[in-house]
Amino acid sequence: MRILFALPGFHRYERGAEVALLSVADELAKLGESVTVIGAGEPREGVRYRYKKLGAARRERFERLPSIPGLRDETKWEDATFAANLAAKEDLSQYDVTVTCNFPFTNLALQRGRRKGPRNVFVTQNGDWPAFSNDSEYRLFNCDGLVCTNPSYLERNRDRWNCTLIPNGVDVARFTPASSAEKIACRERLKLPQQRPIVLMVSAFIRTKRVLDGIRAVAQHDGAHLVVAGDGPLRAEGDRLAAELLPNRFTRLSLQASEMPQLYRAADVFMHLSEFESFGNVYLEAWASGLPVVAHDFEVTRWIYGDTQYLCDTGDEAALEEKLRLALVAPVGKAPEGIDQFTWPEIANNYRNFFSQFAAVSEAK
C-alpha cells in the first residue's frame, strides 16, 4: 500500500497526536508498506518512512488571536497554512490512502484527492467532534474511514461512518520501570532533586489539561516536587502560581522525545488531570514505566486501567488529594501487566488491516 500521513506538527512537536501517528507510520514502513510522512518540521535520521517537509506558520505566533469559526485556536492557523501548501504542492494520486487527524484544513485538502484515487482516513486523535457535529465548519467534514481511539467514539459514530476501534500504543522497549540506581542517574542528568518525591505531569499549558490545578494539588503535599513537561499559552501563569505555591518545588521543562523515558524513570508518581482525552499516550507511557498513576476517572482511563490505578473525580479537591497521597506512598517500578495489547506493532497491524480495504478500492479505480 502507498500511504500518506499529513500533519503540520510532524517532526516539529512531540505531542500525543504526532507521537502516535509517527509511531504507526514507522511500524507500517517496517512491515513493508510504502509510507510517506509530510510535516512542517525538519527531517530526522533513523526513521523508516519517507519524509517530506512543507512550510507552515508556527502555532505559537497565533496564541493571542481571537477565536472565530474555522480558526478557533492557534493550531487551526498552523493547520491552514500547512493545508494550503499541501493542496498546492502534493500530487495525491500517487497514494492509496491518506491519513490525518487535523480538521478542518488538512482534512479538506486531502478530500480533494478522493476524486483521483486515494481514500481518506481520519483519526480521532484530537477528538471526534468533526465526525458527528453538523455545526459551522463541521458540516464540511468527510472521510472514507474513521479510526476511533476509544470505545465512546466508536459507539457515537459507527452508524454514520466506516469505523474501527484502534487505541494508541507505547514502545515497551523504551518506556520501562527504573531500578533505584537508574532513578538516581536520571534525576542527576535532568538536574532534578534526589531527596524529594517527584510528581510528573506531561501536559500542555492549556485550560483543558489543568496543569494549574496540578500545581495546587501538589502544594498540599509537603516536600513533593512537581515536574511539568510541556508548553503552551498558560506557561507564564503556571510559573507565577508555582512560584507562589511551590517555591523551590517546581520544574518546568521541554524535552526531546528521546529524553522522555528517562524523565518517567526519574519520577515517583504520574498525574494527568484532563477530564477527557481522545486517548492519551501519556497514560501508557507512565504505566509502562511502572509509575502509579493519578488521573481523572472517565471511560477512557477506566477502559485502559480498570481498577489498577488511582482514578477519581479530579474536580473534587479532597478526592484528588487523597489519591495523590496514596500514590506517593505506593511502590514504584512494578512491571505492568496487560500492556501487551497496546504495543505499537500490534496497533500498526490493526491500522494495516483497516487500510487494506481502501487500497483495494484505489487499485480498482
Rank of each mutant, 00 (worst) to 15 (best):
D213W: 13
H225N: 09
E259R: 14
A229H: 09
E182I: 07
G223I: 11
L7F: 13
D159E: 14
L234C: 06
A257Y: 15
F279G: 00
Q262L: 13
F250P: 04
N168L: 13
A288K: 01
G39R: 00
V227S: 04
E277Y: 00
F205S: 10
Q111L: 14
A29D: 09
W287M: 05
R15F: 06
G41L: 11
P167N: 13
M1E: 10
V218I: 08
L326W: 05
S289M: 05
L245H: 03
A330V: 06
S136E: 13
L86N: 01
F342A: 04
C163G: 07
S179V: 10
A40I: 06
Q309K: 08
W77K: 03
Y283V: 01
C186K: 05
R235Y: 09
E90V: 15
P118K: 00
L212W: 00
A173T: 14
P345Y: 07
V199W: 01
A20M: 10
V361D: 15
A20F: 10
K52G: 07
S34M: 11
G333Q: 08
A109S: 07
P118W: 00
A217P: 02
G338N: 09
R174E: 11
F279N: 02
G315M: 10
D26W: 06
E90I: 15
A229F: 06
D171Q: 06
G70A: 09
Q195P: 00
F10S: 01
F122V: 01
E321W: 03
R44W: 10
T164N: 08
G70V: 08
A109P: 00
S203G: 11
G230T: 03
Q220H: 11
Q220E: 13
T124M: 09
M271G: 04
A243E: 12
I68T: 10
R158V: 10
G39V: 08
R325V: 06
N162H: 12
C186E: 07
L192R: 00
E259A: 15
S258T: 15
G315S: 12
F175I: 00
K53C: 11
F298V: 03
A181G: 14
S136N: 15
S152I: 06
W161R: 02
E90D: 05
H11I: 04
I198S: 04
D316H: 03
T149A: 04
T75P: 08
S274E: 06
L7C: 14
A17M: 06
H221Y: 02
L284E: 04
P331Q: 10
R12E: 05
R240K: 14
T100Y: 08
N150W: 02
A295F: 04
